[in-house]
Simulated assay, not measured.
Amino acid sequence: MHSVELRTLSPAELSRTARVHIAGHRGLVGSALVRHFTEQGFGDLLLRSSDVTDLRERDAVRRLYAAERPRVVVLAAARVGGIAANAARPVDFLSDNLRIQLNVLDAAHEFGVERLLFLGSSCIYPKHAPQPIPESALLTGPLEPTNDAYAIAKISGILHIQALRRQYGLPYISAMPTNLYGPGDNLDPRTSHVVPAMLQRTHEAHSRRASRITHWGSGTPRREFLHVDDLARACLFLLENYDGDAPVNVGTGSDLELRELAALIARTVGYQGSVEWDASRPDGTPQKLLDTGLINGLGWKPEIALPDGLAETYAWLRSQSRP
């Protein structure tokens, strides 16, 4: 494989005329990235849906990059899902994500991409990592078994980024967002994450005037939630302000029990019935709060408070013509 000569960029304001490939632009994160980059004046976004370019297919990715020559890439494409989906289909989560990452990162190097941001997940950290979790906790202990296949794929992506920096001197970086939510989220109860699952379940109970709803687990795990528009702002900020080996945590710096989240969602929806918990269902990691000292020290902080973000997300959910 022959690599073209690279014109690498130091962290600085990106040219708004640069061609930017947002990989995974139809997903929760990708759609937020499209909104933010467009608002910030980027006029040449390279967007290809999976039915046009399947990022799991190596030749398809090489053809895309050979023809379009993006200068900047945000790799947000991934197979994602909640605890049930991860536990039921670990092979899919491992295989699909590894192939996407390998194909995009190899093509980026081969065809001269100047700046690239790889998006991982907070599940890369050990199940019993210190709280809040610093970036240095990576690879220091066993993973949470319910999503270890997905986590291993994302860890491979981080190491691939570090290897490209070490071997070729490329200013590619990676970021690890905490639990995300917002408009455009997956509402499928079989595969959704905790916020959309709880919102949908509570909305349906409210619509039926049900006297009770039951959520998965004990309700005691603590989680941190970041609005996806805040993540999109963080992505552009990091591309313009960070160039380092370490993955960068992106979160709010605060968490709450899932019981508290359920109560907040009930208030958002207007549901007044009882909220119960099915403790036979898995809880996952007992706590997952990211140490955001690195990105905060660079000058970035989130802007959307959880109650405001949930209200916006619920308004979007209601607009989807769900019962």
Rank of each mutant, 00 (worst) to 15 (best):
W216F: 06
V195Y: 04
T268W: 06
L143C: 02
G169L: 09
P323G: 15
E144R: 05
P177Q: 10
R99N: 01
Y314G: 07
Y168P: 04
P177N: 03
H36W: 15
K288A: 13
L117Y: 06
G293D: 05
A232E: 07
D278S: 02
K127A: 12
L45P: 11
R223A: 02
V194L: 11
L261D: 07
I83V: 12
D230W: 09
W277S: 00
R115I: 14
Y314S: 09
V228Y: 07
P183V: 08
K301H: 13
H160Q: 10
D229R: 10
K301F: 11
V73H: 11
Y65S: 02
A87G: 09
G273N: 09
Y65K: 03
Y181R: 04
K301N: 10
G284K: 01
A175M: 06
D255A: 10
T53Y: 03
L139R: 15
P282K: 02
R222S: 08
E135D: 13
T178F: 04
V80A: 14
S218D: 00
D96P: 00
S174T: 07
N147Y: 12
S10N: 13
H109G: 07
A311F: 05
R48W: 09
L264V: 08
L102C: 04
R259Q: 08
E303H: 11
G30T: 08
A311R: 15
R233G: 11
G157V: 05
D54V: 01
P132Q: 02
V4W: 12
I124P: 06
V34M: 09
P171F: 12
H215R: 01
S49M: 01
P189D: 03
G30C: 04
G253H: 00
P286R: 01
E312L: 14
P247D: 02
G27F: 13
S218T: 09
A23I: 06
L310A: 09
Y65M: 05
S218V: 00
Q272I: 13
A266F: 08
L143G: 03
H109L: 15
V194T: 10
E224A: 02
N147A: 13
L258V: 08
S156M: 10
C123P: 04
R48F: 08
I265S: 05
G273H: 10
I83G: 07
A315L: 13
P130M: 02
S49D: 14
H160W: 12
N179A: 06
E303S: 14
A108R: 03
H193R: 10
P130Q: 05
E39C: 08
R208I: 07
A311H: 12
L258Y: 06
T252L: 01
P145M: 12
N179K: 01
H109T: 10
G120C: 15
S254T: 11
A129H: 03
P183F: 10
A197G: 06
I265M: 08
L187P: 00
T292V: 14
F237C: 03
H203T: 06
P145Q: 05
A315G: 13
Q200V: 07
E276V: 02
P130N: 00
R166I: 01
L28V: 10
R223N: 04
A32R: 05
R71K: 15
